[in-house]
């Protein structure tokens, strides 16, 4: 990773803070006026709230000052990670998110690893024999799985596994196997894309002049593949991981809700329903940062695999 890419990712993190800050700030401004009271209640408990405490909160949020100054101080709190207290539980948002983030990362990482074991190998297999039955099957299932949204994959999986066979836990979190279904739900969607990328990349590489030159130099088919194929095929697969993280993060929101998985996406949806603004802000912010971090990780992996300089 060079300085330009790191710089861009840092810039992107600021954009995330800006967008999330702006969104939640507008929310505060357009919502009915008892917000300060509710925040104070969330913080001190309903019994202890009086108009003085509410007034203090009002001042703290800058609800009566100039909107621009108020937004700047809002933004400043955000980038210092001062996320406030949940309106619903009164818990520090930072602590709640820290706890939930662990679960989400657990789910997302399992899904990603699972998808990498399904997608690219199938894609390479298809790419080696374009037009064959395997290729057609992989192509068709890729289109089908890309067309079923994650939650629908989840619903169908629930139907098949838990009820018919009673094999796997349907929802919740506790059993070590309870992560299998939500992870598989996400992994199938991810693999649908990565298999296609791997297939197209493999075909392109095998048709390339350098692949042919490798052969005519006298390398055997497996030598050519390992020396000139694998790395060149990995480059687009890794680059595409960046795009797939969009799917992964969106998937986390919906799939966690479906499977009642106590992660950050689940919590975001709850917060939106309950209009728990500090919680919305915190979860959206952290998910945005996770997205930026994952993209930076892709930059790093790319750098590792592909020695060419690249500009974002």
């Amino acid at each position: 990773m060079n300085q330009a890419t790191i710089g861009y990712r840092v810039f992107q993190a600021f954009l995330v803070a800006f967008l999330v800050g702006l969104g939640t700030f507008i929310m505060v401004r357009v919502l009915p006026g008892d917000l300060a009271y509710r925040i104070a209640a969330g913080r001190y408990g309903y019994d202890l709230v009086d108009s003085v405490a509410a007034e203090a909160v009002r001042l703290e949020l800058g609800l009566d000052g100039s909107p621009i100054l108020a937004f700047l101080s809002w933004f400043w709190d955000l980038i210092r990670f001062d996320l406030g207290y949940s309106l619903v539980t009164g818990e520090l948002v930072r602590d709640a998110i820290f706890h939930e983030l662990g679960h989400s990362v657990d789910l997302a990482a399992t899904a990603l690893i699972l998808s990498l074991f399904i997608g690219p190998p199938l894609g390479l297999l298809a790419g080696f024999r374009p037009g064959s039955i395997i290729d057609r099957l992989v192509l068709a299932s890729s289109v089908v799985f890309r067309s079923i949204p994650h939650f629908a994959i989840g619903l169908v999986l629930i139907m098949i596994f838990s009820i018919q066979a009673g094999l796997l836990p349907v929802a919740g979190h506790g059993h070590p196997l309870s992560r299998v279904l939500p992870a598989l739900t996400l992994a199938l969607g991810l693999a649908a894309v990565s298999s296609r990328i791997a297939r197209d990349a493999m075909i392109k590489v095998r048709e390339s002049d350098y692949y042919l030159f490798g052969r005519t130099k006298g390398l055997s088919e497996s030598q050519v593949f390992f020396r000139h194929g694998l790395r060149n095929v990995s480059v687009p697969i890794i680059t595409y991981l960046g795009m797939q993280f969009v799917y992964l993060i969106e998937g986390v929101v919906v799939v966690e809700t479906l499977f009642a998985w106590p992660g950050i996406g689940h919590s975001l949806v709850h917060a939106i329903v309950a209009r728990d603004i500090p919680m919305i802000q915190g979860t959206a912010f952290v998910m945005g940062l996770m997205f930026v971090f994952l993209n930076a990780l892709v930059d790093f992996l790319n750098r590792l695999v592909d020695p060419r300089e690249r500009v974002v």
């Binding site: 992107q12 969106e250 919305i280």
Partner: peptide, 21 residues
Amino acid sequence: ADTFLALPGLLLVLLLVAIAP
């Protein structure tokens, strides 16, 4: 364009929807 790419799309929509569900 970069600003809108900074967040996964659904997150952006969720934030907006949260303003006026």
